[in-house]
Amino acid sequence: MFDPGLLIQSLPLLLAGLWNTVWLSAGGLLAGFVIGVGVCSLKLSERTVLRRLGGAYVSVFRGIPLLIQLLFIYYLLPRLGLDVPAWVAAMAGLALCCGAYLSEILRGGFLTLPPGQVEAARLLGLGGRDILVRIKLPQALRATLPALLNEVILLIKASSLISAVGLAELTRTAQNLAASTFLQLQFYLAAAVLYCVVNISLALLAGRLERRFEAGRA
Score class of each variant (00 low, 15 high):
1 M>E: 15
9 Q>W: 11
10 S>Y: 04
12 P>V: 03
13 L>H: 05
13 L>A: 14
14 L>H: 03
15 L>N: 13
17 G>V: 00
22 V>R: 02
25 S>L: 11
26 A>I: 10
26 A>T: 13
29 L>W: 13
31 A>H: 03
33 F>C: 03
34 V>A: 14
35 I>Q: 01
36 G>V: 09
36 G>D: 09
37 V>H: 01
37 V>T: 05
40 C>K: 07
41 S>Q: 10
42 L>P: 11
43 K>R: 15
48 T>G: 00
50 L>I: 04
50 L>M: 07
51 R>N: 00
51 R>L: 02
52 R>Y: 12
56 A>Y: 01
58 V>C: 00
61 F>H: 01
64 I>G: 03
65 P>A: 03
66 L>K: 03
68 I>H: 06
69 Q>V: 15
71 L>K: 08
73 I>C: 04
76 L>D: 00
77 L>G: 05
78 P>I: 11
80 L>K: 03
81 G>E: 01
81 G>K: 06
83 D>T: 15
83 D>E: 15
85 P>A: 10
86 A>M: 09
87 W>Q: 14
88 V>L: 15
88 V>E: 04
92 A>L: 14
92 A>Q: 00
93 G>R: 00
94 L>G: 06
95 A>C: 07
96 L>Y: 01
96 L>E: 02
98 C>H: 14
98 C>Y: 14
99 G>H: 07
100 A>I: 08
103 S>Y: 05
104 E>K: 07
104 E>N: 07
107 R>M: 06
110 F>I: 10
112 T>N: 13
112 T>S: 15
113 L>N: 04
113 L>D: 09
113 L>G: 08
114 P>R: 14
115 P>R: 05
116 G>L: 01
118 V>Q: 14
119 E>P: 07
122 R>S: 11
122 R>M: 05
123 L>Y: 11
126 L>Y: 14
127 G>K: 02
129 R>K: 14
133 V>D: 07
136 K>W: 06
136 K>S: 11
138 P>W: 03
139 Q>N: 05
140 A>I: 07
144 T>W: 12
144 T>P: 09
146 P>R: 01
149 L>K: 02
152 V>G: 05
154 L>C: 09
154 L>S: 15
157 K>Q: 13
157 K>R: 15
158 A>P: 09
159 S>P: 00
164 A>H: 09
167 L>E: 04
168 A>I: 10
168 A>P: 08
169 E>G: 10
170 L>R: 04
173 T>L: 08
173 T>A: 10
174 A>V: 01
176 N>H: 11
176 N>G: 12
177 L>V: 06
178 A>P: 03
178 A>E: 01
178 A>N: 02
178 A>T: 01
179 A>C: 07
180 S>P: 08
182 F>I: 11
185 L>V: 14
186 Q>R: 10
188 Y>D: 01
190 A>C: 02
193 V>N: 08
195 Y>Q: 05
195 Y>N: 09
199 N>D: 01
199 N>G: 02
199 N>H: 02
200 I>L: 15
200 I>C: 13
200 I>S: 13
201 S>W: 06
202 L>D: 08
205 L>H: 06
205 L>W: 08
206 A>T: 13
208 R>E: 05
213 F>S: 13
213 F>Q: 15
214 E>A: 15
216 G>M: 11
216 G>W: 11
218 A>S: 12
